[in-house]
């Protein structure tokens, strides 16, 4: 594996040195001759929550799937901790993925396993030196952090939608990732549970010191979690800024997007 390189960039907004953990340049990805992402470039800085907003079909989920190479880009480069994801061999890719937590839109809990086994599964594979006791302790602690301490031996089918999402979040953070990728974390949840998930995203950022990309079209989630927002439209970055910049914007697309969800 190549050495980890952290590039440093001076951002004009706050004139302070920030470390780039993800740097995407001119990313293109399409399916069946139809371009989904067209020349997309963005950066994720250390410790920040970057929210990516956009309509359905604007390529938000494709973007984060390209970051972990679940999808292979047609063109462009994706650097995670300075390493070009597309140039990694299978072993290096597996090592890189260990640093990234991915919360799927559907939760993607393993149906045939209990919640405890769901959490143990990645933990055993990523932290191979942990003893049985340490694994049990870590699983219990993590479930407690997401408020699901009493679901240890339950099957995913016995949990509600919000609980499944939290269990899935627990499975993602149990391996102490450095970057979190959230794919529509509040989709299909009621407003109260959505707020709980948004709070959890913030808690995780503080407690585990993660850098995150949150893919969403839920303005409330964006408002609660975003340090910075990028809006995608037609596979390109349409606007970048803080939540205040977006709320003030007179642009027709932005304002309609925000007004429609008020």
């Amino acid at each position: 594996m190549t050495n980890m390189v952290i590039t440093e960039t001076v951002t004009p907004e706050n004139i302070k040195i920030e470390k780039e953990v993800i740097k995407i340049d001119n990313l293109r990805k399409g399916f069946d001759n139809e371009g989904i992402l067209k020349n997309l470039s963005l950066k994720l800085f250390d410790g920040e929550n970057l929210v990516v907003l956009g309509k359905s079909g604007s390529g938000k989920s494709v973007l984060i799937k390209c970051i972990v190479r679940l999808l292979t880009p047609d063109q462009g480069t994706i650097n995670v901790f300075g390493e070009n994801v597309n140039g990694l061999n299978n072993n290096d890719l597996a090592d890189m993925r260990k640093k990234i937590g991915f919360l799927f839109q559907s939760g993607a809990l393993y149906d045939s396993m209990t919640i405890k086994q769901n959490l143990e599964f990645p933990l055993r594979r990523i932290h191979k030196n942990l003893s049985r006791k340490e694994i049990d302790k870590k699983v219990e602690e993590t479930l407690e952090n997401v408020g699901l301490a009493d679901t240890l031996n339950k099957m995913p089918s016995q949990l509600s939608g919000g609980m499944r999402k939290r269990a899935s979040l627990a499975r993602t953070i149990v391996v102490d990732p450095m970057i979190m990728l959230y794919d529509e974390p509040t989709t299909g949840l009621d407003p109260v549970t959505s707020d709980e998930i948004s709070s959890l995203i913030n808690d995780i950022q503080k407690k585990y010191k993660t850098s995150s990309i949150v893919i969403t079209h839920d303005i409330e989630c964006a408002r609660a979690t975003a340090d910075r927002i990028i809006m995608l439209d037609d596979g390109e970055v349409y606007m970048e800024g803080t939540i205040k910049d977006f709320e003030k914007s007179a642009d027709a697309l932005i304002s309609s997007f925000f007004k429609k969800q008020k």
């Binding site: 799937k65 993607a108 393993y110 149906d111 990645p122 594979r125």
Partner: peptide, 21 residues
């Protein structure tokens, strides 16, 4: 049916991103 439903519900993708082949 089992692997098909795992594919549909992104469980196979989840396995892949948790460094499991």
């Amino acid at each position: 049916a089992e692997l098909g439903s795992m594919k549909v519900t992104e469980q196979i993708d989840a396995m892949e991103v948790s460094s499991t082949n």
